[in-house]
Simulated scan of single mutants.
Amino acid sequence: MAVTETGPEQSAAAKDLLAELAALEDPKIRAVNEKHGDDHGVNLTKLRALAKNHAGDEALGRELWDSGDTAARLLALLVVKPGMFSADELDAMLRESRTPKVQDWLVNYIANKSKLAEELRLRWIDDADPAVSSAGWALTSERVAKKPAGLDFDALLVTIEAVMVDAPERLQWAMNQTLATIGIENPELRYRCIDIGERLGVLRDYPTPPNCTSPFAPVWITEIVRRREVAEK
């Protein structure tokens, strides 16, 4: 763990939790995580168990976040609640999220569940930083699935078609998810989404384990639609 020492300004609870995280560090887990850009070695099941005893403790969550340590920040995101932060605070947190897992949890557990989700989506989606933009696209995919009214699907698909193939990995993945979600949720746009996916070929050859659905949009769309149709019979 990168941060093992605590300053005098930290509470006893924060010091204790940082020490517990340090004790949970597993070199084998770290080695696996580092292949995906994440610099921590803590089992996430144990991390979640640790968070249960401190749920809703805003001050503690902020202390853990401010430590700068990846495992501590993941723990912080399990402890805090979405309504505890302003849009500016969440924007700053996203921009200082150094690893994919921290960004993913911040977007999905906090920003997406906040009343500020749409404000953040609009703030982030066209950001020059591709990691920040990817967060905007992740929120867009969620809105396509749950609150699609008012979205300009044509504009989204035009942007995806123009940008996705050359986008950095994290942004490309989020745009691809939005493409698939539009195709799954909108029968009238399904052929167009499948056609865009086929022509761009993004994630066509992504290694997919047996019994898992490929992230290649044409396959993803077709399979999820098939499953829904089977479930409805």
Rank of each mutant, 00 (worst) to 15 (best):
S97F: 01
A55R: 15
T208E: 08
A117M: 07
G183W: 02
E25A: 10
E185L: 03
L90N: 04
G83E: 13
A92N: 12
V32W: 11
S114N: 12
G61S: 10
L189T: 04
G83K: 15
H54P: 00
V80S: 11
I194F: 00
S97N: 04
V230E: 14
A92C: 06
P215I: 15
F153M: 12
D195R: 14
A174T: 05
A162R: 15
L60W: 10
Y191K: 14
D39P: 02
F153H: 12
L21M: 01
S134P: 04
H54K: 02
L200D: 02
A55K: 15
L78I: 04
W137M: 09
P82H: 12
R30K: 13
A13N: 05
P148H: 11
A174R: 12
D38H: 05
A138N: 06
I125S: 03
M1F: 10
D57P: 04
P168F: 02
L120G: 04
W124I: 02
L60D: 02
K35R: 14
A131W: 06
L17K: 00
A217V: 08
V80C: 14
R190M: 08
Y191E: 15
T178I: 00
A149T: 09
N108G: 04
G83Q: 13
E118S: 04
R48V: 08
R204L: 03
T178G: 01
W137C: 07
E223Q: 15
A217G: 09
D154V: 07
P168S: 08
G197T: 05
E161H: 10
A138P: 00
A149C: 03
V225R: 08
V165I: 12
R199F: 01
A55T: 15
T70L: 10
E20Y: 03
L74Q: 09
L94W: 03
P148L: 09
V165E: 15
K146G: 05
E96D: 11
E5K: 06
R190C: 06
N53A: 14
D91C: 05
Q177K: 12
V42W: 02
R123H: 04
P209E: 13
I125Q: 09
L151Y: 00
A131P: 00
L44D: 10
A149S: 09
K81R: 15
V165M: 09
L116Q: 11
P207Y: 13
D66K: 11
I110V: 14
T4V: 10
P8S: 07
A128M: 07
P168L: 06
A167L: 02
P148G: 08
E229Q: 14
Y191I: 10
N186Q: 12
E34R: 13
P100K: 02
S114Q: 11
V79G: 00
K46E: 15
K147R: 13
L116W: 06
Q103R: 14
G68P: 00
L151M: 02
R192P: 01
G83N: 11
M164V: 08
V42D: 02
G150M: 01
A71C: 03
L203S: 08
L17W: 01
V219D: 14
Y109S: 09
V144Q: 07
L60M: 08
L157Y: 01
R30L: 14
S214G: 03
